[in-house]
Design a protein around this nucleic acid. Structure first.
Lengths: 184, 184
DNA sequence: GTCTATATACAGATAGAC
DNA sequence: GTCTATCTGTATATAGAC
């Protein structure tokens, strides 16, 4: 991948996390990376091509972060805290998860981007489910690993969404408390 | 409030829940209610005026639904199920909560709309917190009512968001299961 | 790979007639 | 209250020169 293409992806990612995909324009991206909009079209033929590429790169980075969490932590609680941290970092920048934002805008995405978005949520929830199932003995809940995975994933996406509205972090913190309650 | 103004609000509400506020245009709304776009501007001077009005009306309807839940149900579990149902209905229409959508788009809203949005989340979470606190004895959790309120509110917003991406209802259902686990 | 130039469409908003 | 007409800005996308 060319350096410029990567630069455009990065600029798009930052903009989407803050303002959403619909607010991103080829012209603005072009200015941010120092070219004209037609050059952005050279790297990404359509806006949906850009959407798909950005979602796939974000998912890859997210998967790499999950592997780091696996390597650096032993207990279930530490791993859940690591997962929570990924969303807390996004929230600290006054952003929301790129794929949470794209999920809100899914009706204006093309098929390729939609498929990539589904893959992000599948990967993330499966990591949670696998992690919860592997530490079943540390878990104080009668819910299944799959149910808890859905609860944490939905919850953290929603928490960043709502915390940003009032500029607090009460909801992200509530999910840290839930981790302690279930795996403490 | 004039009938036409109310018609426009309804059309806007429907469009926002599916495609987001940024996709709503005065022209499209005008066609849907059978007038020209300048007439829509007569009822709502700016797009932000429209946003604020729609959020306030949505919040009022939501509060009315919460009062119905209070009247129709006795147990904590039944009330939590009633709250869950509000989001399940939205999800069944392939929509997301209007205020969840607006939350994703908050960076492009004006001050009036932002304030109305904060009020929606405050009202909703306070109903949950009050309800949970009033039934503390039925509650099997070491978390506070405020923490659980944040978890349900964030969780259900996120659940509708993600369930729509893959067209399933696994996440909404997981929160029903959580209600049973905590208040069954 | 990047540029200029342009096609085409649509956005929010307003003036002024009726 | 609604209309026609218009201003101004912006969007995605492409053709063709360099």
């Amino acid at each position: 991948m060319s350096a410029k293409r990567s630069e455009i992806e990065q600029a798009a990612t930052r903009a989407i996390k803050g303002d959403g995909f619909k607010s991103v324009s080829f012209r603005t991206l072009a200015e941010q990376v120092g070219v004209k909009s037609s050059s952005v079209h050279y790297h990404f033929r359509t806006k949906d091509d850009l959407a798909e590429a950005v979602i796939r790169s974000y998912t890859e980075a997210f998967e790499a972060a999950l592997r780091s969490i696996d390597q650096d932590n032993e207990t279930l609680l530490a791993k859940l805290d690591g997962f929570n941290d990924l969303f807390a970092e996004v929230a600290a920048a006054d952003d929301i998860c790129l794929c949470g934002m794209m999920a809100a805008e899914v009706s204006s995405l093309g098929d390729g981007a939609k498929q990539a978005l589904r893959a992000y949520f599948r990967v993330s929830e499966q990591w949670l489910e696998k992690t919860l199932a592997a530490h079943a003995t540390e878990l104080k809940s009668d819910l299944s690993a799959a149910q808890l995975a859905a609860i944490f994933m939905s919850g953290l996406e929603g928490a960043t969404l709502i915390d940003r509205v009032d500029g607090k972090d009460a909801r992200i913190k509530a999910f840290r408390a839930l981790s302690r309650s279930l795996a403490g």
